[in-house]
C-alpha cells in the first residue's frame, strides 16, 4: 500500500515538474500536508496499527448519542 501512496506523491511531483504551476507558500504547505497524510495513513494500514485506531471516535461520541435518541423517540 505504501508503494501506491508513493504513486500519489510521484503524480504530484510530476505535476510540479511538467505543468510548473505558480504556487504560493500555502499551496506548497497544504499539498505537502495532504501527501504526508496519504503516506502516514498508508503506513498505519500497512503496519496493522489500523485496527487499534479510531480517528472518528470524537465524531461518534458527539453525534451517535443524538442520532440514537432520535431513533428511540420517533
Amino acid at each position: 500500500m505504501i508503494w501506491f501512496a508513493m504513486l500519489f506523491v510521484g503524480g504530484t511531483v510530476a505535476e510540479w515538474i511538467i505543468v510548473k504551476p505558480k504556487q504560493k507558500f500555502q499551496d506548497w504547505a497544504v499539498q505537502l500536508v495532504l501527501l504526508g497524510m496519504t503516506v502516514f495513513f498508508a503506513v498505519l494500514v500497512e503496519t496493522d496499527v489500523w485496527p487499534q485506531l479510531d480517528p472518528l471516535e470524537p465524531l461518534k461520541a458527539v453525534f451517535m448519542p443524538m442520532t440514537e435518541w432520535i431513533y428511540n423517540h420517533v
Binding site: F8, G11, D27, V30, L35, M37, T38, F41, P55
Partner: peptide
C-alpha cells in the same frame, strides 16, 4: 493544485 494530494488522502483515509 490539490486534486491529486487530496485524492491520495481520501484513498488512504477510506481504509483507515
Amino acid at each position: 493544485l490539490i486534486a491529486i494530494p487530496a485524492g491520495g488522502a481520501v484513498w488512504a483515509g477510506s481504509l483507515l
